[in-house]
Design a protein around this nucleic acid. Sequence first.
RNA 1: GCUGCUGUAGCUCAGCGGUAGAGCGCUUCCUUGGUAAGGAAGAGGUCAUGGGUUCAAUCCCCAUCAGCAGCUCCA
Length: 754
Amino acid sequence: MLQLQLPDGSIREVAPGTRGRDVAEAIGKRLAQAAIAVTADGAVLDLDRPLPTDKPTLAFRVLTEKDAEALDVLRHSCAHVMARAVVRLFPGTQLAFGPATATGFYYDIDSPTPLREEDFPKIEAEMKKIVEKAEPFERFERSVPEGRALCADMAQAYKVEHIDDELHKFGGLSFYRQGEFVDLCRGPHLPHAGRVGAFKLLSIAGAYWKNDSSRKQLQRLYATAFFSQKDLDAYLALVEEAKKRDHRALGKQLKLFTISPLVGSGLILWMPKGALVRGILESFIKDELVKRGYQPVYTPHIGRLELYRTSGHFPYYRDAQFPPMYSRPAAGALDLCQYRLALGEVDEKKEQAVLDYMKQAHFLPPAYVDAPTQAAKLEAVHQYAVALMKVLQVDLPDYHKATDAAGRSDALLKWLMDQEGFLLKPMNCPHHIHIYKAEPRSYRDLPVRLAEFGTVYRYEQTGELNGMTRVRGFTQDDAHLFVTPEQVEHEMIANMELVLFVLKSLGLNDYRVRVSLRDPASDKYVGDPKNWDIAEATLKKLVQDAGMNYTLEPGEAAFYGPKIDFVVRDCIGREWQLGTVQLDYNLPERFQLEYVGADNKTHRPVMIHRAPFGSMERFMGILIEHFAGAFPLWLAPEQARVLPISEKFTDYGREIEAKLRSAGFRVEGDWRPEKIGAKIRGAQLDKVPYMLVVGEKEATAGTVAVRDRVDGDIGSLTVDELINRLTQEVNDRTIRQVATATADIGDAGAKFAG
RNA sequence: GCUGCUGUAGCUCAGCGGUAGAGCGCUUCCUUGGUAAGGAAGAGGUCAUGGGUUCAAUCCCCAUCAGCAGCUCCA
């Protein structure tokens, strides 16, 4: 017998082979009718699937529409319904993956006739027919060879490939049949399609097969489903609400920032109001840094190429940087040849990256694109380099002596190192390193903490650019700490505390902590693995000791070291890295940093990179959404607006404005010949924290009628009382209003694949 | 970068193979009012840019630029 422990704690004994549905029926008829699926020890199972017997006791629960897991089941089943409709309407469609997501589901498909959004009504109509027929989802199992043959019979090439790549490792395969539609799938599913209450197709986009950009791009059909139309409508309304908070829309409306194609995409122009907020944030953090023993420095926006060759940034992120600036034109062209030759034999993906880069730089050697092999490509580059050198009268005997790509690359690089070349700085660390190096350092000087609002430039792919959150020029509230190995832990903790202090000060309490580690399978990381081990162990210990909720994420580390990242979501559910603290044993090595220890010998310091805001641009973008544009008083670009009842009180209003301004507040007045209602509406829409209504009564009494953005009319105050109130609120950095409802449009992970 | 969609007044958007419309905003005038929209008049557009098709293109086709959604990437 099998023992089931029900949620109320009671135990129910059932025979082996009993299905979830049987138990639900035994408990009650209405429960059986409402049942969607069951859970056995947390695993969700179909109603008609026999309960597992490998353990004598199971925690058992019947899932109904009220349970969150049931919604995932519904959505996954709806994905099958959608796929079935698409296959009916577009014969020959190949199916890939179709999982439920945090807010809906998608199905990746490859159709001979690509789908378009105009097809949505047709697909939805077909889905409706399927739902109305309420056919059951029937599970059946096959051995791997049988299942593979079945998929091949159905001409589902992606399913076959997936079986060959992954699923063959498991003993058998499961399928679900619904009418004429059969799909390789792990399940679980609804008892029948009639349980799908409401659904809507949302969008269509490209997605690479198995998320690999070197593989074929499929069409991903996004949709969502709920048990009721009411829930669907509520979700869609929530999404609409959230979109109104989008920093790109609010930034425009509230005149915080703008982007001009003529200045360049991904380059933020901070308008006066946005600049004001940024300035306040900068002073806020600067004051905090000085208290914590930081030394502010300034460094230029560009640096010698050699600097970034040494740091590793230039070669490593070559195609994600603005092209280098050489004073001799020959150098620029030969630099590209060198880049190509240095890579030598490369994989398909890197090859594509090189091609793209050369295209972008308007440099494609003749015969390069058509060259059939790697060797032929290299030869084309070589011939081009020879021709260039001849025309530009560059004489490199070493180059001509070299017999292979590596030798030629070395010869070119040697020459290029002597050329004057600059790079827009992609990172601030090399500059700060040279401030460290500018004087001999003793262990007594350490930690040296150099801080700067440093603007860096990175050539992000066009498809990545996004408002203020992903840009090509941004300012980090950057600092580099040079510490002894013994100081690492203490300084790391201090910096995590600083990040937390910043987030807390702004009421950003909804973040997650990511410990970004290296991917053991990748070769992109530099430095001694031993140092990596030390660094990673240190970070793990820190977050553990701090009792933080964190996730370990291999593959997320910087190429020079692991990091602790603070990740927040925007209003439409996308995640962005804000604050970051990074531990680095590598750059000190590369730049030969030293200090003299108590033993009078030289030692190598350790570097900590950290930016509590991340970048001013991204932080501002997130902050706009966090407050829905309604900044707390200490940050509000316009803190109060004087609203005269009529033009007769303009003079009195001007007086109030002047008094508040001289008390240090950012105040404007609405002097238009409008009625008070219209002026209030304007101020509310501009999200001004305080509206100061002045008319006959106030002018006579020497007061102002204060209207609060949140609470409305709060009665009359004298100017002194008002100043006291505002001063208090600014000093406390009071946060009175935060936008809470985030529409989880983002994909927080697939629930049921297949 | 890839796939798809989009680009019309300062903003949000309608529109059509026969050289342009609304609402808001702006300017001026009237109104001088008490806590989310008073009234009237007016200004404002090379319909993203460059080619092509056509008697004729804002509309159809191509390219470029820019934006949006997603994928990939992110020091």
